[in-house]
């Protein structure tokens, strides 16, 4: 979702009028993250690796949680582009775990079937977990090929792939877990959790 569509009334909506505290309380309960500790210094956004491409920087994410604007949070592009580098939480004087909030919102958006702004990021993650569920491990070569085919980018990394092949970096036979039933058990309640 382009930032311009969401932020028409940006300054107005970020004001602390009509605050709905339910999301803030939910995040405190579910993630153990208390945004009341935020002192509004902005160091999270100053450190953020991807602030320059985010529609909502970490500081704004915290503010949106505070006013309870869940709709904006679940649709924002930052859910797709956060690299989980944890610079924000380490620079925060109150150690507010913003990456945990982002993951919580990602999971919630997915549960509600909200389309991510960058479908490829979610597709890649799902394909990767498919391999984990099937083999217990990820076969990088297979994952890359499958991802590029699924997204119709047949020749995207062909030149890089050729070089990696000659360096012996591509493995045709994936490494697998023997007691795979143990790993599949870990996935058994995942669909139920996704449906809430």
């Amino acid at each position: 979702m382009p930032a311009t569509q969401l932020s028409t009334d940006f300054h107005k909506t970020m004001k602390l009028d009509n605050v709905n505290t339910s999301l803030q309380e939910e995040i405190k309960l579910e993630c153990g993250v208390d945004i009341e500790l935020c002192m509004e210094c902005g160091k999270c956004s100053g450190g953020c690796s991807n602030a320059h491409i985010f529609d909502f920087t970490p500081r704004k994410v915290v503010q949106l949680v505070k006013i309870g604007d869940e709709e904006t949070l679940l649709k924002m592009d930052a859910l797709s582009t956060c690299v989980s580098c944890h610079l924000c939480v380490d620079r925060c004087p109150s150690q507010i775990d913003i990456p945990r909030i982002i993951d919580y919102l990602r999971e919630k958006a997915h549960k509600q079937g909200i389309e991510p702004t960058r479908k490829n990021v979610q597709l890649f993650n799902k394909l990767m977990l498919d391999y984990v569920q099937k083999n217990g491990r990820v076969a990088e070569t297979h994952l890359m090929v499958r991802f590029n085919f699924k997204t119709g980018q047949y020749f995207k990394d062909a030149e890089m792939g050729r070089k990696m092949f000659f360096k012996g970096k591509l493995k045709p036979f994936p490494s697998k877990v023997k007691r795979i039933e143990q790993v599949r058990l870990l996935f058994r309640d995942v669909p139920a959790r996704r449906e809430g």
Partner: peptide, 20 residues
């Protein structure tokens, strides 16, 4: 017989799965 740590894929989609 170790298995994948789950990487970014798991923690982005399911917290308990990632930890497990």
């Amino acid at each position: 017989d170790w298995s994948c740590c789950g990487a970014t894929a798991a923690h982005s989609l399911d917290h308990l799965l990632a930890v497990s």
